[in-house]
Simulated scan of single mutants.
Amino acid sequence: MREIRTEDAVGHVLCHDITQIIPGVIKDAKFRKGHVVRSEDIPVLLSLGKEHLYVWEKDESKYHENEAAEILCGLCRGDYMERSGVKEGKIELTSTVRGLLKIDTELLDRINGLGEMMIASRHNNTPVEPGDKLCGTRIIPLVIEKEKMEEAVEVCGGKKIFTILPYRDKKVGIVTTGSEVYHGRIKDAFGPVLKEKVKEFGGEVMGQTITDDNPEHTRKAIEEFITQGADMVLVSGGMSVDPDDKTPLAIRSTGARVVSYGAPVLPGAMFLLAYYEKDGRQIPVAGLPGCVMYARRTVFDLVLPRLMADDPVTKTELDKLGRGGLCLSCEVCHYPNCGFGKGW
């Protein structure tokens, strides 16, 4: 930091705020620390009584906070994102589409661990809408060593920390099991719920087939939807461990690869996720427990956005849902603005 005449300050970076005071009107910083002085600023600075300024001494081994912020933004920003302008070393990113926010959490942690820079974000695997804020980035000091930013670039190795997977226009088949529904003894309550949830993410329900408790009938219904071009099949009912609950058997008998039968989430512990391979495609087949029919939010609400964005789900990821996998069934539901399902 050095002191120079205000008239000689064009192009230099202020090391301190300069406050403007007009009694009864304003008392605020007219120029912020980090501001690059322009020729048109000189008369204003002089009018504020600033004959001399303290400025950052230019050093080719360092970046100004705004220069470094641009580099950090480039490491974060993937497709379908808008950025804010840079101010005091800060840049924010927002979504331009409906989709699923994916975060390389390992890279995020490593960048934040470097020091002198920070990234604060939403949770990984969060559904986002156009205009939703994704993250805020900031360079902490006024100037930062170029070597530090080069290290950040090297850590990322060409990868983006944030990506958005837009939802796909998926065709979805629904298979509802249960002799009580099949024979008309009770009214089906699963169909309307599932249709509404699929519609929320832009999917198209091809149809709904109701089967009895015979797993062979359920298997055929699943395979018929796949033959008709379904991108996903949802199978509801018959998911517990009672002897007459045969839905898991029916899903397995299609030859689908079962990722997991059971998830550390309440409501939704008896959830089953499998993938049926056809023509090189991995078609999700999900077995949905009864809670999906009546609970406001369940494991299905956590997994569905990923399935609609063609984001494969692994058993390891499902296992991590135990951290935050307990829905508190609040009287007023604030999901997704709560801790439910943020473990992955």
Rank of each mutant, 00 (worst) to 15 (best):
E3Y: 12
D8M: 05
H16C: 02
Q20I: 15
I21G: 00
I21D: 08
I22E: 10
P23K: 03
A29P: 00
I42A: 04
L45G: 04
L45Q: 02
G49I: 12
L53T: 03
W56T: 11
E57Y: 03
K58Y: 15
S61V: 00
A68H: 05
E70I: 10
I71S: 00
Y80S: 02
M81A: 02
E88L: 13
K90Q: 13
I91A: 10
E92C: 13
L93C: 09
S95V: 07
L100I: 11
L101I: 09
T105Y: 13
L107N: 07
G113P: 07
E116C: 03
E129L: 10
G131A: 02
D132C: 04
G136K: 05
P141Y: 11
L142D: 04
I144T: 06
E145I: 00
E145S: 13
E145W: 07
E147I: 00
E151F: 04
V153L: 15
G157H: 05
K159W: 08
I161M: 05
T163V: 11
I164T: 05
P166Q: 05
R168V: 07
D169K: 15
K171E: 13
T177H: 08
E180C: 04
E180H: 06
H183M: 12
A189Q: 13
A189T: 15
V193C: 01
L194V: 00
E196Q: 13
E196H: 12
K197P: 03
K197D: 03
E200P: 00
F201R: 12
G202E: 13
G203N: 11
T209H: 06
P215R: 03
T218K: 08
T218F: 06
R219K: 15
R219A: 05
E223Q: 15
A230Y: 13
V235W: 11
V235Y: 12
R252D: 00
R252L: 11
R257G: 04
V258H: 04
S260K: 15
Y261F: 14
A269M: 15
A269H: 13
A269D: 03
L272Q: 15
L273Q: 10
G280M: 10
V285F: 02
G287K: 10
G287C: 07
R296G: 01
R296I: 03
T298C: 08
V299L: 14
L304M: 12
P305L: 07
D311L: 02
K315V: 04
L318K: 04
D319W: 07
K320C: 04
L321A: 01
G324H: 10
L326K: 14
F340T: 04
G341A: 07
G343F: 01
G343L: 02
G343Q: 02
W344N: 02
